[in-house]
Amino acid sequence: MRFLSSFLLLMIALPTQGRLNVVATTPDLAAIAREVGGSAVNVISLARPTEDPHFVEPKPSLIVKLRDADVLIEGGAELEIGWLPALVDRAGNRKISPGGTGHIKANDGVRMLEVPTELDRSQGDIHAAGNPHYLADPQNACIVARHIEKTLCALEPQSASQFRANTDQFVHDLEAKLAFWRQTLAPFKGQTVVGYHNSWPYFAERFGLRIDLFLEPKPGLPATPTHLAEIIGQMKQRRARVIIVDRYLDRRTAEAVASRTGAKVIEVTHFPGGIKDTEKGYVALMDYLVNALAKAFAR
């Protein structure tokens, strides 16, 4: 009996350890939250860095994580629309529901690219709010960090100075790094990079690259031989030498195209931890992406 009661007590006591529970939908948002919150918060990501963030399994355990959350950071651009709303509904947590004190819609104030002029699914799986992969631009990471800072300061005023200092530091570091990254990629401005899925327009814009050829004929549809033939033709014409493929996408198709065009396939990810050496956080991720691209271009 005593065992049972202490077990029950333990079960109830476990989720809260005094620190704010911050739940981010994706690992990039989680990484930024860790920078801002530091040791004063406990951050988890619902999606894992290696998986397709559009199709996270709505495991019941995620409902429990949302129920125990003080803060929910969501992308805000429909990336999670296929799995998150049902979980939030079921969790019944007022704090993290839209409009709640701990609900952060991370893309507020972000200039969204590729917002469709009309919603037409014959054009493939498009996002009505624009391309949701906006964190590939470090400047947007600064905006997101400020949102998180604001919410954390409001929820835990006694740590506000720490949150502010952390955020200032993060933004300052990014600023310095960004200059360096732009410099690294500057020699390759205007070059074409072929993507598998159209998830890199923000990165392209920031670093002056052209990432406008895709192995998918339309967002979400599998590659077809005719489409690939067209892409190969375009790649030769534009002398495209680099193909980027997200970890969870079909690398074999990319390799096949690369072998016909002499291009190099590099594995990319939007998420810290999606590829080896990116685990440390957002800066490590961008370091990896910029260096991998620069290396592939300079080949």
């Binding site: 200039r111 969204m112 690219l113 590729e114 917002v115 469709p116 002029t117 624009g130 470090p138 400047q139 600064c142 905006i143 400020r146 933004v171 990014l174 600023e175 960004l178 200059a179 732009r182 401005k189 205007g190 327009p201 392209a204 814009e205 920031r206 002056g208 690259l209 052209r210 406008d212």
Partner: peptide, 28 residues
């Protein structure tokens, strides 16, 4: 970014990719 411009504008003149950039921006 909360009153702090982190980076300056992209250098449009020297950026051959800017046509594409402008195209996406206009669609948005």
């Amino acid at each position: 970014s909360h009153g702090q411009p982190v980076v300056t504008d992209l250098d449009k003149e020297s950026n051959p990719g800017s046509n594409w950039v402008a195209a996406t921006a206009s669609s948005s």
